[in-house]
């Protein structure tokens, strides 16, 4: 009897160590456990909290009343909030298009320069992002304002007669957003474009394609994964942006990011804010799934 217990009881303790020693699966899990624990505390638990919160009710002093209901979600289906969502989608889409229009030629150019210059150019794209975001936005305010750099320059060369009213309009918001997200488009595009072998373009020329045709039929399709990766990296954060509309748009329009922020910080309606964030999260998830299903996650996303 005694011999039996002693042979059994240490087993579980040893089995853990043995498992760790023998099973590659357990080793893998042990090695990534710091990351898993980190994600559990900083991603999973807060997200669960938001999910739970979105089914609660606001109390009279902005406290949370723990009574489960769907009221926040039905409230979101109101045309007012759907229109804000639509407007945010439009702004994010225009931002994405803007970054493609400006980013594509830039990435193309960088990919075609000699390798040593490339790293300098890529470095230059990243340099502004070492400065605080708010400071860069204020710099744009200085440039765009009525008596600002842009207007005084255009007036001086006689290009315009009266100053342009750009600051505190939707145009200013778009300029700020495109500026802010440009690197997220350029870098994946560059990765895609850089991989295209010159031989492929030579082959196209040999087969009689003019340079423009070769670009359309060879370069463009081959750079599509980069463009899709860039679009995801730009579109999703652009959907939730609220600083640029506040500072450069004069806080006159509400995007879904502003709506959520206001619920938490001014209306003190956390449950409704949580529901709105859930809606945003679900929409972006659908968008990402749709895109990655069609194009697959390329390594471009990993730059």
């Amino acid at each position: 009897m005694a011999a039996e217990t002693s042979s059994v009881s240490p087993a579980p303790r040893f089995s853990l160590i043995r498992q760790l020693r023998e099973s590659p699966h357990a080793q893998g899990l042990a090695l990534i456990s710091p990351t898993l624990i980190y994600l559990l505390f900083t991603l999973v638990l807060p997200l669960l909290l938001v999910v739970v919160l979105s089914f609660m009710t606001r109390g009279p002093y902005g406290n949370i009343i723990y009574r489960v209901n769907l009221g926040n979600y039905t409230r979101l289906m109101d045309t007012l909030y759907l229109r804000i969502l639509g407007y945010s989608l439009l702004t994010a889409a225009l931002t994405t298009v803007g970054t493609i229009l400006i980013g594509y030629p830039l990435a193309y150019y960088i990919a075609r320069t000699p390798p040593r210059q490339r790293s300098v150019y890529l470095f230059l794209i990243l340099v502004p992002f070492w400065t605080n975001f708010i400071i860069r936005i204020y710099a744009w305010i200085m440039i765009l304002r009525t008596e600002g750099l842009l207007n005084s320059f255009l007036l001086k060369i006689g290009f315009i007669q009266a100053p342009l009213d750009i600051l505190y309009t939707p145009t200013a918001v778009l300029i700020g957003m495109v500026y802010e997200f440009l690197p997220f488009m350029v870098l994946p595009l560059y990765t895609s474009l850089e991989k295209i072998e010159p031989a492929q373009l030579e082959a196209a020329a040999d087969l009689g394609a003019r340079p423009f045709m070769a670009f359309l039929r060879v370069t463009l399709p081959l750079s599509l994964p980069g463009m899709i990766a860039g679009s995801i990296l730009v579109f999703i954060p652009a959907m939730g942006m609220f600083v640029v509309p506040d500072l450069m748009g004069g806080a006159k329009t509400i995007l879904v990011g502003n709506l959520i922020r206001n619920q938490f910080l001014t209306a003190r309606d956390w449950p409704f804010g949580a529901a709105a964030s859930m809606l945003l999260l679900i929409l972006t998830l659908i968008f990402t799934l749709f895109y990655t299903r069609r194009a697959g996650f390329g390594e471009e996303l990993l730059v």
Binding site: R58, P60, Y61, G62, L80, Y81, R83, I84, Y87, A251, K252, T253, I254, N258, L259, N262, Q263, T266, A267, R268, D269
Partner: peptide, 21 residues
């Protein structure tokens, strides 16, 4: 002064005006 429950209505009006209604 604190307006209690009416905060939600105030916020809605604010959102509506800024949302361009």
């Amino acid at each position: 002064k604190d307006i209690g429950e009416a905060t939600a209505l105030w916020d809605r009006i604010w959102t509506e005006v800024k949302g361009g209604e």
